[in-house]
């Protein structure tokens, strides 16, 4: 069967497409469209982090700051400046890229945890501006976001779909696009250079790779992914609050990418799916929710150090081998 498929990238994308196409068949209610839309949007941000963490080996504790920039670009642009939503999305991504470049350029020449503390500060600054500048951002209570017009577009095309279904399809397509970009990057010369840094920076340097430059590329790209994810979240929710840029959200994003398997796009998506659905599933446990979430995070990190998906894949391989 393998030989009929052109490449591993295409295989992964087809698998994703199949999941997205088949999942609605088992949805008990339209609420699940919303959950899957959130998974797709989170996964887009997490794929950006996979590029940063998995390909370049850098950790960011402030990526929600970029999500916040994207989200508020889509809140502020149309409301205050009359920009069309898609242009606001692009401008938000451009702003995030520029800021990532400014912050990353001096700091990524260094090794270690510096990016972590610098991005931590960056995220807190972004959230602080969003909270304090009420005239522009609505302050801590947030602001409404203008409609993207997706639903009316679909209606104009003569299709009968609910809002939740329209967003499910749209966010799924955006996820496929993000995955395609990341997978292609992985197999490109840039991607190979990046992964060589992850393995050994000194070795990469000795074979003539400009380490700082490639790390910067990874950081800027991940900021763009985060910003686009933030814009989509704002457009989907039609409402934003500064929580979206908060430290807790940053931690959730990093956790998603590490839990699933930081070096793989599919792992990132699995992590996003796990951490987006967990709070919904854990509502059954009421007060024990937080405790169980913490335990699951620790458990996966301790017993599956490569992440959930690579670990399960290995285990499957092993059982297959023993069964043979």
């Amino acid at each position: 069967m393998d030989r009929f498929l052109p490449s591993p990238t295409a295989r992964i994308l087809l698998a994703l497409l199949a999941i997205l196409a088949l999942a609605p068949l088992v949805f008990p209610s339209t609420f699940y469209y919303r959950i899957f839309t959130l998974i797709s949007i989170n996964a887009i941000v997490v794929i950006g982090l996979v590029i940063l963490l998995g390909y370049a080996g850098q950790i960011s504790l402030g990526h929600a700051g970029f999500v916040g920039l994207g989200a508020y670009a889509n809140a502020i642009g149309p409301t205050h400046l009359g920009l069309p939503p898609l242009l606001a999305l692009v401008l938000g991504a451009a702003l995030s890229a520029a800021l990532a470049w400014l912050v990353g350029r001096p700091i990524l020449k260094l090794r270690g945890l510096y990016l972590a503390v610098v991005t931590l500060g960056f995220g807190i600054l972004v959230q602080m501006v969003l909270v304090n500048e009420s005239w522009l951002t609505g302050g801590p209570d947030g602001m409404a976001v203008e409609d993207l017009g997706l639903v009316s577009l679909v209606k104009a095309l003569g299709l009968k779909m609910k809002t939740a279904q329209v967003w499910y399809v749209f966010s799924g397509l955006m996820l496929l696009l993000a995955a395609w970009v990341a997978l292609n990057l992985r197999d490109s010369p840039t991607g190979r250079a990046l992964r060589s840094l992850h393995d050994s920076e000194v070795a990469a340097r000795t074979v003539g790779i400009n380490v700082a430059r490639y790390k910067l590329i990874a950081f800027v790209l991940s900021a763009v992914f985060a910003s686009v994810g933030g814009s989509l979240l704002a457009l989907f929710n039609r409402f934003v609050t500064p929580d979206v840029a908060g430290f807790i959200h940053s931690v959730e994003l990093v956790t998603m990418s590490v839990l699933g398997g930081a070096a793989s796009v599919l792992g990132g998506i699995a992590g996003a799916a796990l951490l987006t659905t967990l709070p919904q599933a854990l509502t059954v446990f009421h007060d024990f929710e937080t405790v169980i979430l913490g335990l699951i995070m620790m458990g996966v990190a301790i017993f599956m150090p490569d992440g959930l998906l690579p670990n399960l894949a290995n285990r499957a391989k092993r059982t297959r081998r023993t069964n043979r």
Binding site: R34, I35, L38, N237, F239, T241
Partner: peptide
């Protein structure tokens, strides 16, 4: 107290 979570639970 997270508005995004509140929105999701409202839908649920």
């Amino acid at each position: 107290a997270d508005a995004n979570k509140a929105r999701t639970f409202a839908t649920r």
